[in-house]
C-alpha cells in the first residue's frame, strides 16, 4: 500500500510517515534495504517472485518474444483493472465491465462483418457507447441513489440481454483484420521480434490513467470522494460528478479491453465472461480496498499481471484448469487479508 495510499498530498513521500518515524536512527544496511522494499507496492515483489518461479521452470519465458506474448495476453485484463480502480477508489463497484467487453466484441462483429473499411468509424462509436454505459451507471448510482452493486448488476443484465436480443442469440459476423490487429499483431522490432500493439496500448492507457489518477486534480478528488465523501463534499468536491466520471473511465477501459480481446480470441458469446470479477480481483491484489480511498493504477496493472502469471505458473506445474480457480480464490482472499492487516497496523 505504501506509496499508493491516498488521498495523497501534493507529492506522495517515498516512505510513508508512520514507517519513517518507526525506523530507528542509524540503522544497519539491512534495514535500509527493507525500507526501500517497503516503498515499493508489495504486489510488484509478488509479481517478480512469480515470474522468477516461471523462469526457473521454463527459462525461455523471460526471453523477449515469449514475454511480450505473455504481456499481450495480460493486456485486456490489465486495461480493465486500470479503469476499474477509479471506480473502486471512488468507493463504488463496476460489475458491468464483463458484459460490456462481450457487447463490444459482438457488436463490432455484427456491424463490421469483416469489412476493413468500417473499422475507423467503429472504434470511436464503440468508445462513445462505452462512455455512455459508464455515464448511465454513474447517473443511476449517484442521482437515483441505487447502490452501484445493483446499478451495475442491472447494467450487466441489460447489456447481456440487449446485445443478444439484437444479434439473435449468437454472435454473428466477424471482425475485420485491421480491427483484430490491435489484439493480435504488433510492430516488428529488429532483434526483439514483434512488439504487440496490445502492449503499446496497455502502456499508453496505463500511463494516461496513472497521470490522471496520481497527478491531476481530478485524481485527488477521486481519492477524496472515496476516502471520506462527506469531507470531500464539504471541501468543495462534487462527489457525484467525480464518481460518475470514474464510471465513464471504467466503461471506456472496458471498450479498449474488448477491442484487444476481440482481436486476440475472436468472436465468442463468452468473450467477457467472468472479467468483472477478475478485474476487481486484480485491483484488490494491487492493494486497493473495497469501500474506497485506496488503490493505484500501477499496482492494479501489476495485480492483473500477477493474476495472469499465476495462471501461467499453475499451467506450467500441470495443475488442472479447474484448480486454477481454487488457487485464484485463495490468492485474492490472502491479498485482501494482507491489505487489511497492513491497513490496521498503519492505523
Amino acid at each position: 500500500m505504501t506509496t499508493t495510499a491516498g488521498p495523497p498530498g501534493a507529492q506522495p513521500p517515498a516512505v510513508p510517515e508512520a514507517q519513517r518515524t518507526a525506523a530507528p536512527q542509524g540503522e544497519p544496511a539491512g534495514g535500509r534495504v527493507r525500507r526501500l522494499l517497503r516503498a515499493v507496492p508489495p504486489i510488484w515483489l509478488v509479481l517478480a517472485a512469480v515470474i522468477f518461479l516461471i523462469a526457473w521452470r521454463n527459462p525461455t519465458f523471460v526471453e523477449p518474444a515469449p514475454f511480450l506474448a505473455f504481456l499481450r495476453r495480460c493486456a485486456p485484463l490489465a486495461v480493465l483493472a486500470a479503469g476499474q480502480v477509479f471506480v473502486i477508489i471512488a468507493g463504488e463497484f463496476d460489475l458491468s465491465v464483463g458484459a460490456l467487453v462481450t457487447a463490444v466484441v459482438v457488436v463490432a462483429a455484427r456491424l463490421s462483418d469483416g469489412d476493413a473499411a468500417h473499422t475507423w468509424w467503429l472504434i470511436p462509436l464503440l468508445l462513445a457507447a462505452g462512455a455512455l454505459v459508464g455515464l448511465v451507471n454513474g447517473l443511476v448510482t449517484t442521482r437515483l441513489r441505487v447502490p452501484s452493486f445493483i446499478a451495475t448488476l442491472g447494467m450487466l443484465l441489460v447489456l447481456g440481454g440487449a446485445v443478444f436480443l439484437w444479434s439473435g442469440g449468437a454472435p454473428r459476423g466477424s471482425l475485420a483484420d485491421n480491427f483484430r490487429q490491435f489484439g493480435r499483431f504488433g510492430v516488428e522490432l529488429p532483434g526483439l521480434g514483434q512488439l504487440p500493439y496490445a502492449v503499446l496500448i496497455l502502456l499508453a492507457v496505463g500511463v494516461a490513467l496513472w497521470l490522471l489518477l496520481s497527478h491531476s486534480r481530478f485524481g485527488h478528488q477521486v481519492y477524496a470522494a472515496g476516502g471520506n465523501p462527506r469531507a470531500a463534499a464539504l471541501s468543495g468536491v462534487d462527489v457525484r460528478r467525480v464518481r460518475t466520471a470514474a464510471f465513464v473511465i471504467s466503461g471506456l477501459s472496458a471498450v479498449v479491453a474488448g477491442i484487444l480481446l476481440g482481436g486476440f480470441t475472436g468472436v465468442t458469446a463468452e468473450a467477457g465472461a467472468g472479467y468483472e470479477f477478475q478485474a476487481i480481483a486484480a485491483v484488490v491484489l494491487g492493494g486497493a480496498v473495497l469501500g474506497g480511498g485506496r488503490g493505484s493504477v500501477g499496482a492494479s496493472v501489476a495485480g492483473a499481471l500477477t493474476l495472469q502469471s499465476v495462471f501461467t505458473l499453475l499451467n506450467l506445474l500441470g495443475l488442472a484448469k479447474s484448480l486454477r480457480d481454487a488457487v485464484q480464490g485463495l490468492i485474492i482472499i490472502g491479498a485482501a487479508a494482507y491489505a487489511a492487516h497492513r491497513l490496521r497496523r498503519s492505523g
Binding site: 463497484f93 470479477f277 476487481i280 480481483a281 484488490v284 480496498v289 473495497l290 469501500g291 480457480d325 481454487a326 485464484q328 480464490g329 485463495l330 485474492i332 482472499i333 485482501a336 487479508a337 487489511a340 492487516h341 490496521r344
Partner: peptide, 14 residues
C-alpha cells in the same frame, strides 16, 4: 481477517 465480504465470498466461491 477483516476481508471485505465481496472478496471473501468471491474467493470461497472460486
Amino acid at each position: 481477517l477483516r476481508v471485505n465480504a465481496f472478496i471473501a465470498t468471491l474467493g470461497t466461491s472460486l
